[in-house]
């Protein structure tokens, strides 16, 4: 399945990935090739087959409702790009 360049831009924007304009054509080709590969699936008859999300048919385990974590703010924020007064900083959010 061939993608249009505009579709490539749209997907990139959905995934919040800035692409160089001169790379769009490359992405268009490569992504279209990958989708061609993937499109082999469409020929398979899967009617009545339960989708398999996990390799083992296991069941979610439950955790007791207990507070086990302590405040590690200083430790975690040492690696943050920008913090102030214990908050992570981002350009102003408009609601």
């Amino acid at each position: 399945m061939a993608l249009e360049q505009d579709q490539v831009r749209k997907i990139a924007s959905l995934a919040r990935l800035q692409l160089d304009e001169n790379q769009i054509a490359d992405y268009q080709t490569n992504l279209s090739n990958i989708l061609d590969l993937v499109d082999q699936l469409s020929a398979v008859d899967t009617s009545g087959i339960e989708p398999m999300a996990h390799p083992l048919d296991a069941v979610q385990r439950l955790r007791a409702d207990v507070v086990t974590e302590e405040n590690q703010r200083e430790h975690f924020q040492k690696i943050a790009p920008a913090v102030d007064q214990g908050h992570y900083l981002v350009p102003r959010v408009v609601e």
């Binding site: 490539v8 997907i11 990139a12 995934a15 919040r16 990935l17 800035q18 990958i34 981002v90």
Partner: peptide
Amino acid sequence: LYCRSRGEGFGNEVKRRIMIGSY
């Protein structure tokens, strides 16, 4: 912030796979 950090921070193959998945 999102688009450039991710655009500049990820290499091409990672971007390709993220885009295929998003699609």
